[in-house]
């Protein structure tokens, strides 16, 4: 499998704090890759660096061969590289269908599409995806009136609506009712298998990530600590130490 997303020696510091120190990793096309690490190990910072929320100090990020480190967030999103947020971000005052409609791909927004009404197939697709995550019945509610878990699902559906090639998910199961987690894992896998979306997932829930990912990277203190298959990671001494704080 060829790498669709490559991170090469990316370093990011905030003042004196080194959040990411020369991180290199690659995400193969069509795969599900996990990213784990204790709190404050620099996982979200790495996501922010990849999608252009802040400049990186050195290194390179390539997506399908395109260098991203000089592009701005919307440009990167239009290339098909999308992310969701740990603190779910949705458009609170708009209802679910509207949230979905406006999440459509913006690759070729001309003046005419900007001013158009939504064609029925877009609304159709929006509603289908809401059904896919189990929110169809609540489609007319304002997004801010949904529970946190439902907002998380809505954000996931919005990401799918955008037809990304690669999706970076920041803790997709945090705050979701445990009984729904299995269903969500199933949906993530279906999104990967049926829509062919490459997934790169930050996750704290070990059961989820071991179940989901084919390959896992582990960060600690801003450094890449280990990588390997779920089994290798589970038995890696350094990873266990990092989580238990033995240093």
């Amino acid at each position: 499998m060829s790498a669709i997303l490559e991170v090469e020696n990316v370093t990011k510091t905030f003042g004196g704090v080194i959040a990411n120190n020369s991180i290199s990793l690659s995400v193969p096309k069509g795969s599900i890759i996990g990213l784990i690490g204790p709190n404050g190990s620099g996982k979200t910072t790495l996501f922010n660096s990849i999608v252009g929320h802040h400049p990186i100090d050195s290194g390179a990020v390539r997506f399908q061969g395109t260098e991203l480190s000089r592009l701005r967030t919307p440009q990167i999103a239009r290339l098909g590289l999308l992310r969701t947020y740990q603190q779910t971000r949705i458009f609170g005052k708009m209802n679910c269908v509207q949230n979905m409609q406006i999440s459509l791909p913006h690759v070729d927004d001309s003046f005419a599409t900007m001013l158009r009404k939504f064609p029925p197939e877009i609304t159709e697709r929006a509603e289908s995806l809401l059904e896919f995550v189990g929110l169809y019945a609540k489609r007319q509610l304002r997004a801010e009136d949904l529970s946190f878990g439902q907002q998380k699902l809505l954000e996931f559906a919005m990401a799918l609506m955008n037809e990304p090639i690669t999706l970076l998910l920041d803790e997709p199961t945090a705050g979701i009712n445990p009984t729904l987690i299995n269903g969500l894992i199933d949906r993530l896998k279906r999104a990967n298998a049926e829509f062919g979306i490459t997934l790169f997932v930050i996750e704290h829930n070990m059961r989820v990530i071991m179940n989901l990912a084919q390959h896992i990277y582990c960060l600690a203190h801003g450094e890449l600590l280990a990588d390997g298959t779920p089994d290798e990671i589970q038995n890696d001494r350094r990873v266990i130490d990092a989580y238990l704080g033995a240093h």
């Binding site: 701005r72 967030t73 999103a77 009404k117």
Partner: peptide, 28 residues
Amino acid sequence: AGQFGLAINAIRDDEDKADALGLHATRY
């Protein structure tokens, strides 16, 4: 009622998120 309306509403609710979805915010 159309894409324009939803786009500027999205910018109102969370412009960074709209950016992250690839919306041409400046244009709108």
